[in-house]
Design a protein around this nucleic acid. Structure first.
Lengths: 193, 193
DNA sequence: GGTTTTACATAACAGTCGTTATAAATAGCT
DNA sequence: AGCTATTTATAACGACTGTTATGTAAAACC
Protein backbone atom coordinates (compact mmCIF):
# COMPACT_ATOMS: atom_id res chain seq x y z
CA UNK A 1 0.00 0.00 0.00
CA UNK A 2 2.56 2.60 -0.90
CA UNK A 3 1.79 5.76 -2.80
CA UNK A 4 -1.62 6.59 -1.38
CA UNK A 5 -0.75 7.12 2.24
CA UNK A 6 -2.37 9.68 4.48
CA UNK A 7 0.61 11.39 6.03
CA UNK A 8 -1.32 12.81 8.93
CA UNK A 9 -2.70 9.38 9.68
CA UNK A 10 0.82 7.92 9.78
CA UNK A 11 2.04 10.75 11.95
CA UNK A 12 -0.87 10.27 14.32
CA UNK A 13 -0.13 6.56 14.54
CA UNK A 14 3.46 7.35 15.43
CA UNK A 15 2.29 9.92 17.97
CA UNK A 16 -0.01 7.40 19.63
CA UNK A 17 2.79 4.85 19.93
CA UNK A 18 5.20 7.46 21.23
CA UNK A 19 2.70 8.57 23.86
CA UNK A 20 2.19 5.09 25.22
CA UNK A 21 5.93 4.53 25.37
CA UNK A 22 6.52 7.82 27.15
CA UNK A 23 3.86 7.23 29.79
CA UNK A 24 5.36 3.80 30.44
CA UNK A 25 9.11 4.35 30.36
CA UNK A 26 9.58 8.11 30.24
CA UNK A 27 10.77 10.41 27.51
CA UNK A 28 14.38 9.80 28.46
CA UNK A 29 14.08 6.18 27.38
CA UNK A 30 12.31 7.00 24.13
CA UNK A 31 14.39 6.27 21.04
CA UNK A 32 13.51 6.43 17.39
CA UNK A 33 14.12 2.72 17.08
CA UNK A 34 11.76 1.86 19.91
CA UNK A 35 9.00 4.02 18.49
CA UNK A 36 9.42 2.44 15.07
CA UNK A 37 9.48 -1.10 16.42
CA UNK A 38 6.43 -0.54 18.64
CA UNK A 39 4.60 0.91 15.64
CA UNK A 40 5.44 -2.18 13.60
CA UNK A 41 7.69 -0.39 11.14
CA UNK A 42 11.35 0.24 10.60
CA UNK A 43 13.01 3.44 11.66
CA UNK A 44 12.15 4.85 8.25
CA UNK A 45 8.67 5.98 9.32
CA UNK A 46 10.20 8.50 11.66
CA UNK A 47 12.80 9.78 9.25
CA UNK A 48 10.29 9.81 6.40
CA UNK A 49 7.41 11.57 8.13
CA UNK A 50 9.37 13.83 10.46
CA UNK A 51 12.38 16.03 9.83
CA UNK A 52 14.02 14.80 13.02
CA UNK A 53 13.27 13.52 16.50
CA UNK A 54 12.60 16.97 17.88
CA UNK A 55 9.97 17.64 15.23
CA UNK A 56 8.42 14.29 15.99
CA UNK A 57 8.12 15.18 19.65
CA UNK A 58 6.68 18.59 18.85
CA UNK A 59 4.06 16.79 16.81
CA UNK A 60 3.33 14.43 19.67
CA UNK A 61 3.05 17.40 22.01
CA UNK A 62 0.55 19.17 19.77
CA UNK A 63 -1.29 15.91 19.19
CA UNK A 64 -1.77 15.60 22.94
CA UNK A 65 -2.90 19.21 23.25
CA UNK A 66 -5.53 18.74 20.54
CA UNK A 67 -6.79 15.51 22.05
CA UNK A 68 -7.01 17.01 25.51
CA UNK A 69 -8.90 20.02 24.21
CA UNK A 70 -11.25 17.59 22.50
CA UNK A 71 -11.89 15.81 25.78
CA UNK A 72 -12.80 19.09 27.42
CA UNK A 73 -15.13 19.90 24.55
CA UNK A 74 -16.77 16.51 24.96
CA UNK A 75 -17.31 17.18 28.65
CA UNK A 76 -18.77 20.54 27.74
CA UNK A 77 -21.23 18.88 25.37
CA UNK A 78 -22.16 16.26 27.94
CA UNK A 79 -22.52 18.38 31.06
CA UNK A 80 -22.95 21.94 29.83
CA UNK A 81 -20.87 24.70 31.39
CA UNK A 82 -19.87 22.55 34.35
CA UNK A 83 -16.45 23.76 35.46
CA UNK A 84 -15.78 20.73 37.65
CA UNK A 85 -16.61 18.29 34.87
CA UNK A 86 -14.44 20.14 32.36
CA UNK A 87 -11.40 20.16 34.62
CA UNK A 88 -11.93 16.52 35.55
CA UNK A 89 -11.84 15.72 31.85
CA UNK A 90 -8.43 17.36 31.73
CA UNK A 91 -6.91 15.70 34.78
CA UNK A 92 -4.94 12.44 34.40
CA UNK A 93 -7.80 10.23 35.57
CA UNK A 94 -8.01 8.09 32.43
CA UNK A 95 -5.20 6.25 30.60
CA UNK A 96 -5.42 8.70 27.71
CA UNK A 97 -5.23 11.78 29.88
CA UNK A 98 -2.33 10.23 31.73
CA UNK A 99 -0.51 9.94 28.40
CA UNK A 100 -1.09 13.59 27.62
CA UNK A 101 0.26 14.76 30.94
CA UNK A 102 3.20 12.39 30.64
CA UNK A 103 4.57 14.12 27.57
CA UNK A 104 3.78 17.59 28.87
CA UNK A 105 5.76 16.92 32.01
CA UNK A 106 8.57 15.28 30.08
CA UNK A 107 8.90 18.23 27.74
CA UNK A 108 9.16 20.65 30.66
CA UNK A 109 12.77 19.56 30.87
CA UNK A 110 13.39 20.23 27.18
CA UNK A 111 11.83 23.67 27.34
CA UNK A 112 14.61 24.88 29.61
CA UNK A 113 16.93 24.76 26.60
CA UNK A 114 14.41 25.17 23.78
CA UNK A 115 12.95 28.70 23.63
CA UNK A 116 10.53 27.79 20.85
CA UNK A 117 9.04 24.96 22.88
CA UNK A 118 8.97 27.10 25.99
CA UNK A 119 7.09 29.84 24.15
CA UNK A 120 4.59 27.36 22.79
CA UNK A 121 3.97 25.91 26.22
CA UNK A 122 3.37 29.35 27.70
CA UNK A 123 0.96 30.01 24.85
CA UNK A 124 -0.91 26.81 25.62
CA UNK A 125 -1.25 27.83 29.25
CA UNK A 126 -2.93 31.04 28.14
CA UNK A 127 -5.12 29.13 25.74
CA UNK A 128 -6.18 26.88 28.57
CA UNK A 129 -6.98 29.91 30.71
CA UNK A 130 -9.15 31.38 27.98
CA UNK A 131 -10.91 28.08 27.49
CA UNK A 132 -11.65 27.79 31.21
CA UNK A 133 -12.65 31.45 31.40
CA UNK A 134 -15.18 30.82 28.65
CA UNK A 135 -16.63 27.89 30.59
CA UNK A 136 -16.82 30.05 33.70
CA UNK A 137 -18.65 32.79 31.82
CA UNK A 138 -21.05 30.23 30.44
CA UNK A 139 -21.68 28.95 33.95
CA UNK A 140 -22.37 32.47 35.14
CA UNK A 141 -24.79 33.02 32.27
CA UNK A 142 -26.59 29.82 33.20
CA UNK A 143 -26.81 30.91 36.83
CA UNK A 144 -24.54 28.10 38.03
CA UNK A 145 -22.05 30.64 39.32
CA UNK A 146 -22.80 33.98 40.98
CA UNK A 147 -22.88 37.03 38.76
CA UNK A 148 -19.91 39.35 39.07
CA UNK A 149 -17.43 36.48 39.07
CA UNK A 150 -14.01 37.55 37.80
CA UNK A 151 -13.68 34.89 35.12
CA UNK A 152 -10.09 35.74 34.15
CA UNK A 153 -8.82 35.61 37.70
CA UNK A 154 -10.78 32.48 38.49
CA UNK A 155 -9.56 30.78 35.30
CA UNK A 156 -5.97 31.63 36.17
CA UNK A 157 -6.36 30.08 39.60
CA UNK A 158 -8.17 27.04 38.24
CA UNK A 159 -5.57 26.29 35.56
CA UNK A 160 -2.76 26.66 38.06
CA UNK A 161 -4.46 24.38 40.54
CA UNK A 162 -5.24 21.86 37.80
CA UNK A 163 -1.57 21.85 36.95
CA UNK A 164 -0.58 21.04 40.50
CA UNK A 165 -3.35 18.49 40.85
CA UNK A 166 -2.33 16.76 37.64
CA UNK A 167 1.27 16.29 38.72
CA UNK A 168 0.33 14.83 42.06
CA UNK A 169 -2.41 12.60 40.68
CA UNK A 170 -0.13 11.32 37.94
CA UNK A 171 2.50 10.07 40.37
CA UNK A 172 0.33 9.14 43.33
CA UNK A 173 -3.18 8.32 42.07
CA UNK A 174 -4.05 6.35 45.19
CA UNK A 175 -3.59 9.50 47.25
CA UNK A 176 -6.47 11.29 45.55
CA UNK A 177 -10.09 10.19 45.73
CA UNK A 178 -12.52 11.53 43.18
CA UNK A 179 -14.35 13.37 45.93
CA UNK A 180 -11.17 14.94 47.20
CA UNK A 181 -10.36 16.22 43.75
CA UNK A 182 -13.83 17.67 43.36
CA UNK A 183 -13.57 19.34 46.76
CA UNK A 184 -10.35 21.07 45.78
CA UNK A 185 -11.82 22.34 42.52
CA UNK A 186 -15.06 23.38 44.18
CA UNK A 187 -13.19 25.33 46.80
CA UNK A 188 -11.34 27.16 44.04
CA UNK A 189 -14.59 28.11 42.38
CA UNK A 190 -15.95 29.45 45.63
CA UNK A 191 -18.54 26.72 46.21
CA UNK A 192 -17.92 25.84 49.84
CA UNK A 193 -19.88 22.72 50.64
CA UNK B 1 45.51 17.73 48.96
CA UNK B 2 44.60 14.06 48.62
CA UNK B 3 43.75 11.87 51.55
CA UNK B 4 42.00 14.37 53.84
CA UNK B 5 38.98 15.22 51.75
CA UNK B 6 35.50 15.78 53.10
CA UNK B 7 33.42 13.50 50.90
CA UNK B 8 30.17 15.26 51.63
CA UNK B 9 31.76 18.56 50.73
CA UNK B 10 32.90 17.20 47.39
CA UNK B 11 29.49 15.68 46.72
CA UNK B 12 27.83 18.98 47.56
CA UNK B 13 30.15 20.80 45.18
CA UNK B 14 29.20 18.37 42.42
CA UNK B 15 25.53 18.78 43.29
CA UNK B 16 25.78 22.56 43.09
CA UNK B 17 27.42 22.38 39.67
CA UNK B 18 24.91 19.83 38.42
CA UNK B 19 22.02 22.02 39.59
CA UNK B 20 23.25 25.06 37.73
CA UNK B 21 23.77 23.02 34.58
CA UNK B 22 20.31 21.47 34.83
CA UNK B 23 18.53 24.78 35.30
CA UNK B 24 20.39 26.14 32.28
CA UNK B 25 20.34 23.32 29.75
CA UNK B 26 18.00 20.71 31.19
CA UNK B 27 18.64 17.29 32.65
CA UNK B 28 18.57 15.71 29.22
CA UNK B 29 21.73 17.57 28.26
CA UNK B 30 23.52 16.74 31.50
CA UNK B 31 26.46 14.40 31.05
CA UNK B 32 29.05 13.20 33.51
CA UNK B 33 31.76 14.89 31.49
CA UNK B 34 30.02 18.27 31.54
CA UNK B 35 29.47 18.13 35.28
CA UNK B 36 33.10 17.23 35.86
CA UNK B 37 34.44 19.92 33.56
CA UNK B 38 32.20 22.62 35.05
CA UNK B 39 33.35 21.56 38.51
CA UNK B 40 36.96 21.89 37.43
CA UNK B 41 37.81 18.23 37.71
CA UNK B 42 38.07 15.19 35.50
CA UNK B 43 35.26 12.67 35.22
CA UNK B 44 36.84 10.86 38.13
CA UNK B 45 35.06 12.97 40.76
CA UNK B 46 31.78 11.51 39.67
CA UNK B 47 32.95 7.93 39.45
CA UNK B 48 34.90 8.28 42.67
CA UNK B 49 32.21 9.90 44.83
CA UNK B 50 29.11 8.31 43.32
CA UNK B 51 28.35 4.73 42.36
CA UNK B 52 26.88 5.85 39.05
CA UNK B 53 25.06 8.71 37.38
CA UNK B 54 21.71 7.75 38.84
CA UNK B 55 23.08 7.85 42.37
CA UNK B 56 24.60 11.23 41.63
CA UNK B 57 21.23 12.58 40.54
CA UNK B 58 19.52 11.11 43.57
CA UNK B 59 22.05 12.97 45.70
CA UNK B 60 21.39 16.18 43.79
CA UNK B 61 17.67 15.67 44.29
CA UNK B 62 18.02 15.21 48.03
CA UNK B 63 20.47 18.09 48.19
CA UNK B 64 17.82 20.32 46.63
CA UNK B 65 15.15 19.05 49.01
CA UNK B 66 17.30 19.80 52.04
CA UNK B 67 18.20 23.25 50.79
CA UNK B 68 14.60 24.09 50.01
CA UNK B 69 13.49 22.93 53.44
CA UNK B 70 16.20 25.13 54.90
CA UNK B 71 14.85 28.14 53.02
CA UNK B 72 11.41 27.51 54.46
CA UNK B 73 12.89 27.23 57.93
CA UNK B 74 14.68 30.54 57.41
CA UNK B 75 11.42 32.18 56.39
CA UNK B 76 9.83 30.70 59.47
CA UNK B 77 12.52 32.22 61.67
CA UNK B 78 12.23 35.57 59.95
CA UNK B 79 8.46 35.97 59.76
CA UNK B 80 7.03 33.56 62.30
CA UNK B 81 4.20 31.26 61.26
CA UNK B 82 3.44 33.26 58.14
CA UNK B 83 2.06 30.80 55.58
CA UNK B 84 2.43 33.18 52.65
CA UNK B 85 6.06 33.93 53.45
CA UNK B 86 6.89 30.23 53.85
CA UNK B 87 5.38 29.29 50.51
CA UNK B 88 7.03 32.24 48.78
CA UNK B 89 10.33 30.96 50.10
CA UNK B 90 9.59 27.69 48.34
CA UNK B 91 8.49 29.09 44.99
CA UNK B 92 11.05 29.58 42.18
CA UNK B 93 11.41 33.31 42.76
CA UNK B 94 15.16 33.26 43.40
CA UNK B 95 17.93 31.70 41.31
CA UNK B 96 18.48 29.04 43.94
CA UNK B 97 14.86 28.08 44.22
CA UNK B 98 14.66 27.95 40.45
CA UNK B 99 17.49 25.40 40.51
CA UNK B 100 15.66 23.22 43.00
CA UNK B 101 12.49 23.17 40.96
CA UNK B 102 14.46 22.53 37.79
CA UNK B 103 15.73 19.17 39.00
CA UNK B 104 12.43 18.22 40.59
CA UNK B 105 10.63 18.77 37.32
CA UNK B 106 13.36 17.03 35.35
CA UNK B 107 13.22 13.96 37.56
CA UNK B 108 9.46 13.70 37.12
CA UNK B 109 10.25 12.07 33.81
CA UNK B 110 12.62 9.56 35.37
CA UNK B 111 10.15 8.61 38.06
CA UNK B 112 7.84 7.11 35.46
CA UNK B 113 10.33 4.26 35.08
CA UNK B 114 12.01 4.36 38.48
CA UNK B 115 9.74 3.15 41.27
CA UNK B 116 12.25 3.99 43.98
CA UNK B 117 12.47 7.61 42.83
CA UNK B 118 8.74 7.79 42.42
CA UNK B 119 8.21 6.53 45.97
CA UNK B 120 10.68 9.04 47.35
CA UNK B 121 8.99 11.89 45.52
CA UNK B 122 5.61 10.90 46.88
CA UNK B 123 7.15 10.77 50.33
CA UNK B 124 8.53 14.27 49.91
CA UNK B 125 5.11 15.54 48.93
CA UNK B 126 3.73 14.21 52.18
CA UNK B 127 6.64 15.69 54.10
CA UNK B 128 5.90 19.04 52.52
CA UNK B 129 2.26 18.72 53.52
CA UNK B 130 3.21 17.99 57.12
CA UNK B 131 5.62 20.92 57.15
CA UNK B 132 2.95 23.28 55.82
CA UNK B 133 0.35 21.84 58.18
CA UNK B 134 2.66 22.61 61.09
CA UNK B 135 3.01 26.19 59.92
CA UNK B 136 -0.76 26.46 59.60
CA UNK B 137 -1.25 25.15 63.11
CA UNK B 138 1.30 27.62 64.39
CA UNK B 139 -0.55 30.41 62.62
CA UNK B 140 -3.81 29.29 64.21
CA UNK B 141 -2.15 29.21 67.63
CA UNK B 142 -0.90 32.75 67.08
CA UNK B 143 -4.34 33.90 66.03
CA UNK B 144 -3.27 34.67 62.48
CA UNK B 145 -5.74 32.11 61.18
CA UNK B 146 -9.21 31.37 62.49
CA UNK B 147 -9.54 28.57 65.02
CA UNK B 148 -11.12 25.40 63.69
CA UNK B 149 -9.05 25.48 60.50
CA UNK B 150 -8.56 22.01 59.02
CA UNK B 151 -4.78 22.15 58.81
CA UNK B 152 -4.35 18.84 56.95
CA UNK B 153 -6.85 19.73 54.26
CA UNK B 154 -5.54 23.26 53.92
CA UNK B 155 -1.96 22.03 53.70
CA UNK B 156 -2.91 19.57 50.99
CA UNK B 157 -4.50 22.32 48.96
CA UNK B 158 -1.62 24.71 49.55
CA UNK B 159 1.06 22.23 48.51
CA UNK B 160 -0.86 21.31 45.39
CA UNK B 161 -1.37 24.94 44.45
CA UNK B 162 2.29 25.69 45.17
CA UNK B 163 3.19 22.90 42.80
CA UNK B 164 1.11 24.38 40.02
CA UNK B 165 2.33 27.89 40.75
CA UNK B 166 5.95 26.77 40.70
CA UNK B 167 5.69 25.19 37.26
CA UNK B 168 4.07 28.22 35.72
CA UNK B 169 6.38 30.72 37.41
CA UNK B 170 9.43 28.72 36.40
CA UNK B 171 8.60 28.87 32.70
CA UNK B 172 6.83 32.22 32.51
CA UNK B 173 8.06 34.42 35.37
CA UNK B 174 6.94 37.63 33.66
CA UNK B 175 3.37 36.37 33.81
CA UNK B 176 3.29 36.40 37.60
CA UNK B 177 3.63 39.50 39.73
CA UNK B 178 4.51 39.13 43.38
CA UNK B 179 1.11 40.49 44.31
CA UNK B 180 -0.67 38.06 42.04
CA UNK B 181 1.16 35.17 43.64
CA UNK B 182 0.25 36.38 47.09
CA UNK B 183 -3.37 36.78 46.09
CA UNK B 184 -3.55 33.18 44.92
CA UNK B 185 -2.02 31.88 48.14
CA UNK B 186 -4.18 34.15 50.28
CA UNK B 187 -7.31 32.94 48.55
CA UNK B 188 -6.29 29.37 49.29
CA UNK B 189 -5.87 30.16 52.95
CA UNK B 190 -9.29 31.73 53.07
CA UNK B 191 -8.11 35.30 53.49
CA UNK B 192 -10.24 37.12 50.91
CA UNK B 193 -8.94 40.64 50.62
C1' DG C 1 61.50 8.24 55.49
C1' DG C 2 59.80 4.67 53.25
C1' DT C 3 55.13 2.68 52.70
C1' DT C 4 50.58 2.74 51.84
C1' DT C 5 46.32 4.67 51.23
C1' DT C 6 43.58 8.03 48.91
C1' DA C 7 42.48 11.54 45.19
C1' DC C 8 42.37 12.51 40.77
C1' DA C 9 43.73 12.21 35.62
C1' DT C 10 43.87 9.79 31.39
C1' DA C 11 42.24 6.87 28.21
C1' DA C 12 40.06 3.15 26.35
C1' DC C 13 35.79 0.21 25.98
C1' DA C 14 31.51 -1.31 24.56
C1' DG C 15 27.18 0.22 23.62
C1' DT C 16 23.58 3.24 21.83
C1' DC C 17 22.03 7.24 19.84
C1' DG C 18 20.04 10.17 15.72
C1' DT C 19 20.78 10.53 11.10
C1' DT C 20 21.49 9.33 6.32
C1' DA C 21 22.72 6.78 2.11
C1' DT C 22 21.30 2.98 -0.57
C1' DA C 23 18.20 -0.34 -2.16
C1' DA C 24 13.93 -3.01 -2.73
C1' DA C 25 9.12 -3.21 -3.28
C1' DT C 26 4.59 -1.49 -4.31
C1' DA C 27 0.78 0.79 -6.75
C1' DG C 28 -0.85 4.55 -9.35
C1' DC C 29 -0.49 6.75 -14.07
C1' DT C 30 -0.09 6.87 -19.12
C1' DA D 1 2.67 -3.18 -19.56
C1' DG D 2 6.09 -0.21 -18.50
C1' DC D 3 7.48 3.85 -16.14
C1' DT D 4 7.65 6.59 -12.16
C1' DA D 5 6.97 8.35 -7.75
C1' DT D 6 6.50 7.04 -3.17
C1' DT D 7 6.82 4.08 0.75
C1' DT D 8 9.42 1.20 3.61
C1' DA D 9 13.62 -1.70 4.87
C1' DT D 10 18.45 -2.30 5.64
C1' DA D 11 22.67 -0.95 6.98
C1' DA D 12 26.24 1.88 7.97
C1' DC D 13 28.33 6.26 9.89
C1' DG D 14 30.05 9.26 13.26
C1' DA D 15 29.30 11.11 17.52
C1' DC D 16 28.41 10.78 21.65
C1' DT D 17 27.19 8.11 26.24
C1' DG D 18 28.27 5.90 31.10
C1' DT D 19 31.55 3.04 32.97
C1' DT D 20 35.94 1.09 34.09
C1' DA D 21 40.90 -0.09 33.94
C1' DT D 22 45.27 1.90 34.47
C1' DG D 23 48.52 5.21 35.93
C1' DT D 24 50.38 9.12 38.79
C1' DA D 25 50.99 12.11 42.54
C1' DA D 26 50.47 13.47 47.11
C1' DA D 27 49.74 13.28 52.09
C1' DA D 28 49.14 10.59 56.19
C1' DC D 29 50.99 6.83 59.15
C1' DC D 30 54.36 3.81 61.30
Amino acid sequence: MPRIVDHQQRRDAVARVALSLIVEHGLDALTVRKVARAAGFSTAIVSHYFADKRQMLLYVYRFAVLRAAGQVRDALDAHGHDVVACLEALLPLTPQSREYWAIWLALWDWSTSDPELSAEQNLQVRNARQMVAAVVEGAVAEGRLPAGTDSAMLARRLVTMTNGLAVQILFDPADWSREQIRDVIRYEIGLRS
